[in-house]
Write a protein that binds this DNA or RNA. Structure first.
Lengths: 217, 217, 217, 217
DNA sequence: TATGAATGAGGCTTCATTCAT
DNA sequence: GATGAATGAAGCCTCATTCAT
């Protein structure tokens, strides 16, 4: 589980008890929502997982829906940050561009494969009709990542390292090559794809991408 | 709604009402499951939508879960058939290959965008942990489509129309370029992407695919 | 199962089909009611056991309650007849009276232990509050048996073979000695007490009865 | 209603309402089960009778079956204690033995006639096939009472007050004379037999018992 | 604030019974 | 008369939520 929902085990001093509990509840909520989906998740179960009384959950979050939104928001924030950090590595620093592309591809693939990312996508897909506003949250995340990736690709194209007419289209297609490969192997996000497979997928995506947009094309 | 859940036009020998009702219930179940997801779907609502008594649903399907599986199975069958029919068009009949690829891409995109396909994907994603066996159903469908597509690509490669080393990889990547583009525009399958956009997406996918695997590559 | 509910396998000719089915349904109803009790018995199950459609049961008996009453009535009739036949054997025909008493005791015990008798008692006990009128049916049966037994005892007393002031009390006590012993060994009518045990019980009952009311007393 | 289902007078330390409600629910459950039998008893009705919400019943007992078992257990415990207390009175303290026997007979008859005892017997008889394990509970109670009674009779026999070869048989027969008489007059436990009748029955049972096993025999 | 107990609303499922053939 | 399908009325149980401490 990523940092977003981890208990802040920094100082287990007394005054932090409340915050610890809040974190524990969020983490527990993630676990249970991810396992069961929104509707099937039981608040009792979340409370039990967090080792608090059910009423405490209500004291902190008001109701199940709010708790769900908080979890989704936290997961989205984390995922966005992680992806942006990866995209930032896509620079032609004089080294071997294909290697960089493969590397970035692999890291993006890994983000996409994080347990939280997969759970988040499943939750959103499942509850999209009930919580249409959550679509905005994820759309925003996707767009920011795509935009950042497009920016990098545009710079590489300007620098002559790539031949790209429409950076946003290229960014989308690079992402598509990665995620399409993963989806085919992750059983609808149910399975953790091992790094070795991710490397294969990323390399294949990078190869095709570079054949289509590479310098020599 | 596609044919899968409509009257399967048998002989009106048996008391007609029976089959009609069965079909009506399956169609209603699809509608309600698609709208609300498995857990939130109410059997009452399905019965009402099908204009039958709730008990009739139970007489025919035993329980909610079985009904759900039947719906998924029916949707999968239809989706598979539709996709295979499209893939079968991918031949180099002496005409313009890029045009054929764009055409097939568009038609596949449309399949992917069918209301039933989108709903099916959302349902599976949502309920994967509760119904792990359904993953097999869907995986099987995906695999068959990918395999058929790979077969076609292999023949085109043999004929010299394309330059493909690994037909299965290429098939997967072609599909990825299509679906990745659609996913980015369908708000997690929530929105019906208009044909015009599908054409743009399909053309872009075909272009990139051909740049990477085309004859002149 | 006794004759009352057995299919009248006399002439399996066609015109008897109806009667056969009626019998089959009664027998099936007995089986199911005995196994599950009135409330837990399912009409479907009865129909299935009788190999007829559920609606046929309704065509013949109107509703579940009527069917239940018919079953109870039939069982009561059979039980009454069987018991009276046994009581009729209680005569001092010049032979050994203790032997006769033991013999009659054993036969009465056996009647009391018949599967149908036990089931009937359980059904009546269970449903007494819901079907208070059924109490009249069984009370009537009990009374007739007790009366017949009292009659016999009175004659034996008159003849000097027994010393009985109140024949009805004596009859009741003889029955009590028998049934009390059986109840203690039949696990609330759940178990079929084997003949060997019934002999022991009957002999003990006869012994005590004769010690209390016998000639030499 | 006897003490078993009334407030067990613990310390009012814990929030008082809890125990009160538990007791109220058990008492209500007894009332409703006794009136309707297990299958026909409605949990709603029990809850209403106990003046709690239906869910509270489930919070405390889990399900209807568990509640039923608890009721049966509580009733059995009470009945056992009451009967054993009566049997303990069967001593030849130099007074008039026949009087003691009649007295104990009457008190045992009264136990047997308690509303709870009658209801318990009916419930067990009715549900024996569905809850075979309950037979063990009741058998155990019967056996303990019979054993205690046999013990007393054995001592009286040793002391020369009675002539008994097999104390257990004698105990069983004494009980049979009592219960047989009651059963004939209680309409399958449906009717409360008045004390006057119980005296007649007990006196008759004692008379016959003493004729068979008394000192002068 | 944290909790254990209580609750109202509602869902799935069953079943006696009726209809149409 | 016999049947298969259909149905309405309930019943058990769950669960999000609130109360009282």
């Amino acid at each position: 589980m990523s940092a977003a929902l981890k208990s802040s085990r920094e100082r287990p001093s007394t005054p932090r008890g409340r915050i610890d509990k809040q974190q524990a509840m969020l983490a527990a909520a993630f676990t249970v929502f991810a396992r069961a989906g929104y509707a099937q998740a039981r608040v009792d179960e979340i409370a039990a997982e967090a080792k608090v009384a059910k009423a405490t959950v209500y004291n902190h979050f008001g109701d199940k829906e709010t708790l769900f939104r908080q979890v989704v928001q936290a997961l989205s924030d984390t995922a966005l940050a992680a992806n942006l950090a990866v995209v930032a590595r896509l620079v032609d620093d004089g080294g071997d561009l294909p290697t960089v592309v493969r590397e970035v591809g692999f890291r993006l693939a890994r983000c996409y494969c994080e347990e939280e990312s997969r759970a988040l996508r499943r939750l959103i897909a499942a509850e999209a009709p009930q919580f249409p506003d959550l679509l905005d949250v994820v759309d925003d995340v996707s767009r920011q990542i795509a935009q950042a990736l497009a920016d990098r690709l545009a710079r590489l194209s300007l620098a002559g390292s790539l031949q790209i007419d429409d950076p946003e289209l290229a960014a989308m297609q690079f992402a598509a090559l990665l995620t399409g490969g993963i989806d085919a192997r992750s059983r609808v996000g149910t399975r953790q794809v091992p790094d070795a497979e991710l490397h294969v997928i990323a390399d294949a995506a990078a190869a095709t991408f570079l054949k289509a947009f590479g310098e020599q094309a």
